[in-house]
């Protein structure tokens, strides 16, 4: 199944997936054999340096630029370097995303693994009880099952501001253009985007944004003038 073909924890592109129709979640069990280019070429770090984010990810989990890839990071789409095994499948020795439930059930076994580990949190799941372990996750994915379900905005801010989480914070699920600026401000740094028009808008730099802000949020933002809470983004 998923993990059999990966020769080493640092193999890449094990879960490249073409963008699917809008609304489909992460596909499970898809694997592509590592291509020669990905196995051999060094991986440019596409992860933009952002103040306070800590060390860049290990290359194994960063994905590589790919116009058809599902992950928007920085200014481009990338492959998704993470696999998401089904609950009853073994967790591969490869960058893997698991549910909170699975983490709690199999923590002892998973704590010792070498490959990067990520957590996907559903809206409504608590994170305070994970506080001591958050540093073990290179990435946390927060799900927006419906775009109107805004719980993950708060969860993201708590992960960053309350718990000091410094790994990648990824928005998954129903991610649309008009929420991405809010997501960034709440501490997300990459986005799984399957909605066609949103993907096009991102590539063309056409997300209509209000770059002036009346309140501080989580992402580091320079002040906009002398009034205490005004911020601006977009440089």
């Amino acid at each position: 199944m998923l993990d059999a073909g990966s020769p080493s924890p640092r193999a890449t592109s094990t879960a490249q997936r073409a963008p699917t129709a809008r609304g489909e979640g992460r596909s499970e069990g898809q694997q592509q054999a590592p291509t020669s280019s990905s196995a051999a070429a060094p991986h440019p770090d596409p992860f933009p340096a952002e103040a306070g984010r800590g060390d860049p990810l290990p290359p194994a989990a960063a994905g590589e630029p790919d116009a058809d890839g599902p992950i928007w990071r920085g200014a481009a789409f990338h492959t998704d370097a993470w696999v998401r095994p089904a609950e009853d499948e073994p967790v591969p020795e490869a960058p893997a995303v698991i549910s909170k439930q699975r983490w709690l059930a199999q923590r002892e076994r998973l704590v010792g693994r070498n490959a990067p580990l990520a957590l996907q949190i559903e809206p409504g799941e608590a994170i305070d009880d994970l506080a001591a372990d958050l540093h073990r996750f290179a990435l946390i994915a927060l799900n927006f099952p419906k775009f109107a379900d805004g719980r993950a905005f708060s969860t993201a801010r708590l992960l960053r501001d309350k718990h000091g989480f410094q790994g990648e914070l990824r928005a998954v699920g129903n991610v649309l253009s008009d929420q991405i600026p809010y997501m960034r401000r709440c501490g997300f740094d990459n986005f799984e985007v399957t909605h066609g028009p949103t993907r096009r808008a991102l590539v063309e730099g056409r997300i209509p944004e209000v770059t002036l802000h009346y309140q501080p949020a989580t992402a580091p933002e320079p002040p906009a003038g002398t009034r205490p809470w005004l911020r601006r983004s977009g440089g």
């Binding site: 775009f147 379900d149 309140q215």
Partner: peptide, 13 residues
């Protein structure tokens, strides 16, 4: 009013 305008965390209550 100002603080609540386009508050990124509270726009999808």
């Amino acid at each position: 009013r100002q603080w609540s305008s386009l508050h990124p965390e509270f726009s999808f209550l």
